[in-house]
Amino acid sequence: MVPAGSREALSERSTFPSTGFGEGTLGDVADSEAIRLPDLAVVFSRRAERLSALAPGHELEAFLRLMAALATAQQASLSGLPPGTLPASSEVAAMRRSGRSPLDPVSAGRDATWRAALDRIIETIDRSVLPEPARATVASLAQTPPAVLEAMADRFLSGEVERKDAAAVTFVAAALQVAWTRMAALLDKADLASDAPETGTCPVCASPSVAGIVSPGGTKFGHRHLHCSLCATAWRYVRVRCIHCGSTDKVSFRQFAGASFVRAECCEKCHGYSKVFYLDHAKPVEPFADDLASLGLDMLVGEEGFSRAPNPFVIGMMERSQE
């Protein structure tokens, strides 16, 4: 039995070296956070850095460079956002206690923060890496009236994007990410504690996860955290368990022969899969960036008949599956 208070004393982490996700590499307790909120100071700039590092020589180099420019603009847009609205602390706690997500974009309202973010992104994005159609999209977005933008955001969030919006929705998604990431970062962790069973969707905003990251073993005990595709929150989820249907029965992995830092965790029961990155093998992994850079794996896993929750920047790249 651990004496009262000693766990808190042990988990004092400030003096220990840590990686980008706050995994202590020394002297941590055998208990990683159930929910890890995004760090506004680095969340998008880390993503941009990783995307730029992955781009050279990649088959999708130009696309990754655009994504890096977009993430850089997202980071820039975080400063100078107007004050937004957040549910009250007691409301957040009550929703979590009943297993709901306090910032669910479908049920909760949406303030104008994201449109301010969109303006900033359009203003600051490095146009030199944009191909012609993207440049035209940015230009037309700057002229689009707020009501049309709101309708576009609604369609994206509820999951029915129209083909004609395909290019614009990338920037809308980026702006929504900025708004939701800021809201998530401002929540109080204490309110989010819950005994509700773990879910494959974000406990903060109910969005699907973009990828899972397994921390290094050793002193950190190799937990998996899923990373939210909208608000960048990470939450713990049992390993070797399908994130879509919760089954542990017929879960197996697919990986490129010889490369073990990323695997697709495939469930034979619901034919869904999700990516898992192992920090043991590649320290600088960033879930969003690495998901985009490893789309080749998705292609091969897709050929075996498995489907995934889409990355918000490549929706439609995936054909609607039959299931």
Partner: peptide, 12 residues
């Protein structure tokens, strides 16, 4: 056909 962020998708 719409495209969606919530539904299962297969990459190709």
């Amino acid at each position: 056909m719409g495209i969606t962020r919530r539904q299962f998708m297969r990459v190709s």
